[in-house]
């Protein structure tokens, strides 16, 4: 259900993500993958992180999620210090990774893969009838209900990406991290995600961080664009 405009404005005054002078290094590297990054993202913002390959966009996402440990600086996600309190806050987040593709023979069906999104937020991972209905609803959003019983590895790249997007959405997250969500989608699906799904998420007050290497791309309703190059934030457009 979409939020009323006032409720949405109130939410947007709250800070969802805050980074102060954050630098992250990969193991054994002397040069940081991201350097001295400071940012503030409000609840309900749709933020585009743009930049060429190797500019540190994925590293930035994974640092915010606590999958990578920053060597310097402080990261706050929904008020929790990351990575120390990452386990407390990850259940409110969804992540679509860049490298989602699985080979033929991957032994999980489409509906199982989507349902896995709910496993971490249910006691002992057990799903109830409502959860399964939610799984089918989100498959409907992407028009892939007919693939529910197909092995994930036997789908095309675009179909696999839709399944992973469905998995991210079924969790009804507070913060959604999308790393190159259009990379395998056809033109029609890309437009649908950009013009229908993303604005709907913003209306619901969900904070979205979207990474794209396509510097010409601008999602509708985008509040902030962060340009990165060589691990540094070079420009922020509000």
């Amino acid at each position: 259900m979409a939020l009323k405009p006032k409720a949405r404005r109130d939410l947007q005054n709250k800070v969802a993500i805050k980074l102060e002078n954050v630098s992250t290094y990969y193991s054994g590297e002397t040069k940081p993958a991201i350097r001295d990054v400071s940012l503030e993202i409000r609840v309900g913002d749709l933020v585009l992180i743009s930049g060429p390959n190797g500019s540190g966009k994925t590293t930035l996402l994974e640092t915010i999620l606590g999958l990578l440990k920053p060597r310097e600086g402080e990261v706050l996600l929904l008020g929790h210090s990351i990575p120390r309190e990452a386990s407390l806050v990850r259940k409110q987040c969804s992540y679509l990774p860049q490298d989602f593709m699985k080979p033929a023979g991957e032994p999980f069906s489409v509906k199982e893969v989507v349902a896995m999104g709910l496993s971490s937020i249910r006691p002992l991972g057990k799903l109830n009838q409502n959860d399964w209905e939610a799984v089918y609803e989100v498959l409907d959003i992407f028009g892939i209900r007919n693939l529910a019983d197909r092995p994930f590895g036997r789908l095309s790249g675009g179909q696999q990406q839709k399944v992973m997007l469905a998995r991210a959405l079924v969790r009804k997250p507070s913060v959604l991290f999308l790393d190159e969500p259009f990379s395998a989608l056809d033109k029609e699906s890309r437009a649908y995600l950009s013009r229908e799904i993303l604005p709907d998420l913003v209306k619901k007050g969900i904070t979205v961080l979207l990474v794209s290497h396509d510097v010409a791309y601008r999602p509708p309703d985008c509040n902030k664009i962060i340009y990165m190059k060589d691990g540094v934030v070079v420009r922020v457009e509000e």
Binding site: L67, S87, R90, C93, S94, P97, E106, S120, F177
Partner: peptide, 10 residues
């Protein structure tokens, strides 16, 4: 299915 994604999901 995917260790890193499972970790990201909590």
């Amino acid at each position: 299915f995917d260790r890193r994604l499972a970790e990201a999901e909590g």
